[in-house]
Amino acid sequence: MSNYQNVIVAVEAGILHVTINRPKALNALNQQTMRELEQVFGKEYKDSKEITGVLITGSGDRAFVAGADIKEFIGVAAEGSGREMSEMGQNVFFLIERFHVPVLALINGFALGGGCELALACHLRVAADTAKFGQPEVNLGIIPGYGGTQRLNQVVGKGKAIELTLTGNMIDAQEAHRIGLVNYALPAAEAKAKAMELLSTIATKGPIAVRESISAINAYYAGSDFAAEAEAFGIASGAEDFAEGAAAFVEKRKANFKGK
């Protein structure tokens, strides 16, 4: 396993746990942290059959990720390389959005700016009821740069996305749940249990079907939609797992999926 400075990585019972570990900086995303996330999702665990799901959270109980590292960003902006920084962040979050198993964000505090964008790149989001969300970049005279203007729009709709982006206002977990930004908003003591329940449930399903479902749903937002779904359906229906799943249904037993 690679050595990481700013993330803690562990596999437990098939679930990859990724913890952003910069509590003194409220887990802000600096470039080192982004490179480490790129290593985790783009190299070390890419296509890994060891895992059935991923849980991302932040260290401590104050923040999931409170944003990008502003001090570092000021230096990048002064060099005129803001576009390159944005593209790098987008590419890292594409790795998460397109990951082969479900990635769930367990949001345990502030999810602001890049932190909200990280949560949006995940497939599922469970929030503690103390969590806060927002895209406050406009307060600094910039805009979201890691996919926030695109994914927030997809998840909560154009009107609410424009409101949150242009006002920079924070919302609480209950409002985030009401508008569909998170799947669940629960007391902190219950949030992790719900996150693990979701990942454990998905782990019992056909791995190929899960992977191709993620691919097909993502394709809708890339403009491929129905053609991509048909291709993904063809892959899943031609796999051994489908024959096993169909046989188990007919025989009224639990399927024994093997990811083949």
Rank of each mutant, 00 (worst) to 15 (best):
A216R: 01
F226W: 06
I179F: 05
M196N: 12
A191T: 00
D172H: 12
Y221G: 03
I217P: 02
S215W: 00
L181Y: 02
A227Q: 15
S200Q: 14
Y220R: 14
G168I: 02
E175R: 09
N183M: 03
P207S: 12
R178A: 14
S215G: 03
T201F: 11
I179R: 07
N169Y: 15
E212M: 12
I208M: 10
G223Y: 02
A173V: 01
I179E: 03
A227Y: 01
Y220S: 07
A173T: 02
P207F: 13
A185F: 04
A185P: 01
S215Q: 04
G168K: 09
M196Q: 15
N169I: 07
S215P: 00
K192F: 13
A195P: 03
E212V: 02
Y221C: 08
G180D: 13
T204V: 12
I179L: 13
A230R: 14
N218T: 05
A193W: 11
A185N: 05
A222I: 00
P187W: 09
A219H: 01
N183F: 04
L186T: 03
A188M: 11
E175N: 05
A173I: 04
V210Y: 01
P187V: 11
Y220I: 04
L181Q: 08
K194N: 08
S213N: 09
Q174G: 12
L198N: 06
A189I: 07
E197C: 06
S215E: 06
E212T: 01
Q174I: 02
G168R: 07
A195W: 08
A195D: 08
A193G: 15
A228F: 01
A176E: 11
A228S: 08
R211T: 11
K205Q: 15
L181N: 09
A176C: 15
Y184H: 15
E175A: 04
V210W: 04
D172C: 02
N218E: 06
Y221K: 07
G168E: 04
E175T: 06
A222T: 10
A188E: 13
Q174M: 09
A185T: 03
I217Y: 04
A185E: 02
A228Y: 03
A176W: 00
V210Q: 05
T204Q: 14
L186Y: 05
G206Q: 05
F226C: 01
S213A: 11
K194H: 14
L198D: 05
R211M: 13
K194E: 10
A193Q: 13
L198H: 09
A228C: 10
P207N: 09
A219K: 03
M170Q: 15
I179N: 01
K205L: 07
R178K: 13
N183W: 08
H177Y: 09
